[in-house]
Design a protein around this nucleic acid. Sequence first.
DNA 1: ATAGATGCAAACTCTTTGCAGGTCG
DNA 2: CGACCTGCAAAGAGTTTGCATCTAT
Lengths: 157, 157
Amino acid sequence: MITNKVIDTLRDRGLRLTRPRRIILDVVRATDAHPTAAFVYRRVRRRLPRVSLATVYRNLRMLAAEGFLAERADEAGMRFDGNTGPHDHFTCLACRRIYDMPARVEPGARRRLSARTGFEVLDHRTEYYGRCAACRRSRGRLSLTRQRRSNGKPQGQ
Amino acid sequence: MITNKVIDTLRDRGLRLTRPRRIILDVVRATDAHPTAAFVYRRVRRRLPRVSLATVYRNLRMLAAEGFLAERADEAGMRFDGNTGPHDHFTCLACRRIYDMPARVEPGARRRLSARTGFEVLDHRTEYYGRCAACRRSRGRLSLTRQRRSNGKPQGQ
DNA sequence: ATAGATGCAAACTCTTTGCAGGTCG
DNA sequence: CGACCTGCAAAGAGTTTGCATCTAT
């Protein structure tokens, strides 16, 4: 899964592709669950039982800084995404799962916004909220109260 | 600033408009800086020196649950917004200020997405990233590294 | 060999909660 | 009066950091 591109890019910056690092990248790239650091930690430990949570955090942060992963924040903390291409997200308010959506294409949107505001628009991203197909069928209830830091039970993790 | 509507809505739920509560709502509504809880706390304390941070958190959470405020998460924590109407946000990557943007109107976008995915789309919001006019003029540098939890020095607060 | 990376534990920040006492209606 | 609310302090969760040790190149 790990391409030579990763190794080369890292080496160019004097960074190494260590075993924990490679496995962490593997884990994030192998899921579309937009995992938290804790999730990645659990998965990595299956293959490398002595890994520490600190190493997971350090590497997630570094890999994101190098552009190999995307980071995003929500009310429950940071999440990571192995899909670094342009795409949007849909968050199900019933099961809290995050789904990838094809990016909305809008030629000229950034340019128009720049013209109107004088701001330099470099990136944009759209978040959708609602209820996914599975929760619709099972009549999953929307959680109207905000997701607290601790009471979240994200499924599939 | 505080309308009777707030008082009435609260009363309908058996809630009171206490002094801390009113001032907290005032403070958030009086700024467009998308303040953190700590910012609100500092401001409220000017008018009510004995207020506690816990009270600020409890009330921000409650006022948001009742729909008087909007909440949003970013990598530095929760932020609150007195503007509850539909609008988008622009985050300046140089000064980290968050600006309001007119909401992008896209008739049929939600419907199309629903049709394609089978998801029930209830809300959506777009975040822009770039460099604001002021930072462009002053050649403010983009912070490419992610904003850490503690090292943030958001201006204007 | 040696700069960089790891594991462990402790520190830090942000946010929430338990509780005794205060307050609004 | 009685439910609601507050301040204080302490607890919790997520994330970061210092340091001795290890390891990739």
